[in-house]
């Protein structure tokens, strides 16, 4: 902080500080506080707001618990997001390892570009591309039928498969880069030493690479999980009624049901669970906030 003042002078330093504080206060803290406040109040017509019926209550949370369908979707969303996280980790780990320790010079640069370029396209469009690939008469089904591997097209959309594929794809970068960052700092000689001492590839990863990359793995998992649990585009486009995401329920409370208080309670419940998930992950991987900040 003192460094900032010394380098830029008091005027710019104060401006930077103030704008950051304003940003955090008005864009992050205030809306969240308002949402929490909303979630504990009953939904009332405008005339009754501030009246005797406008009291704090747990009713909105009780609704989530009592509604078996919503509760089911809630836990299914958490479970599916975990699955997406595990899948993304499985897909991204080899990519990140290859980038960090195997690929050299131009090949590495090319691979990074190949990873990033698709993300210049809007998320909705990318997801829609998957819709085209996976739909009933899409490229993938046509290819499978054409090769004689299946008789009739498989219904990928409208089920969980499409949503899973779409999400793993959507969040690849958020998993690859934390992993890559962590793995890149691993001294190659350690891998060679382990190999020289007779370790199999599996053991080298289990005992040397993964312990070293643990903070990166935790960050990647947390990001992927949060994004998966909080997305609405992918389940909207690639899912169907049977693969409803909890965010879709929240959406409908706000925009279809017009019950902001109920929606806020649902959203807050999701937020709490995501935070719990992060804490559990950090505990499980024995990483601290400082590790993650690195």
């Amino acid at each position: 902080m003192a460094e900032l003042f010394r380098r830029t002078g008091p005027l710019i330093a104060w401006m930077a500080l103030l704008t950051t504080l304003l940003w955090v206060a008005f864009m992050i803290v205030l809306p969240q506080v308002m949402m929490v406040d909303f979630s504990f109040r009953p939904s009332l017509p405008p005339s009754k707001i501030g009246g005797p019926e406008d009291v704090y209550t747990l009713k909105n949370y009780a609704t989530l618990w009592a509604n078996t369908i919503h509760r089911g979707i809630f836990f299914k969303t958490i479970w599916s997001s975990m699955l997406v996280t595990v899948l993304a980790l499985a897909v991204c780990y080899p990519i990140a390892y290859h980038l960090a320790q195997v690929a050299r010079g131009q090949a590495a640069a090319l691979l990074i570009v190949a990873l990033i370029v698709p993300f210049w396209v809007n998320e909705i469009l990318r997801t829609f591309a998957w819709f085209l690939i996976l739909s009933r008469n899409g490229i993938f089904n046509s290819a499978l039928v054409g090769l004689g591997l299946i008789d009739r097209p498989i219904q990928f959309i409208d089920g969980n498969i499409g949503v899973m594929i779409g999400m793993v794809y959507a969040y690849i970068l958020f998993m690859v880069f934390p992993l890559y960052n962590a793995m890149e700092s691993l001294d190659r000689h350690q891998i060679e030493a382990a190999r020289d001492l007779g370790a199999s590839t599996w053991r080298i990863h289990w005992r040397v690479v993964i312990p070293h990359a643990k903070p990166g793995i935790a960050v990647g998992c947390i990001m992927t999980f949060m994004l998966s649990a909080g997305t609405i585009a992918v389940p909207r486009l690639l899912g169907g009624p049977r693969s409803r995401w909890f965010t879709e329920v929240i959406y409908s409370w706000f925009f279809d049901g017009g019950d902001w208080n109920q929606g806020a309670a649902y959203a807050f419940a999701l937020l709490i669970l995501c935070i719990v998930f992060i804490l559990v992950m950090m505990r499980l991987f024995r990483v601290s906030l400082q590790d993650i900040a690195k």
Partner: peptide, 19 residues
């Protein structure tokens, strides 16, 4: 491969496993 040769290598930077 190096994991199946009767050799052991001591690296210049030693490459001990810090964890």
């Amino acid at each position: 491969g190096p994991n199946r040769r009767p050799t052991a290598l001591i690296f210049q930077n030693l490459a001990l496993f810090p964890l």
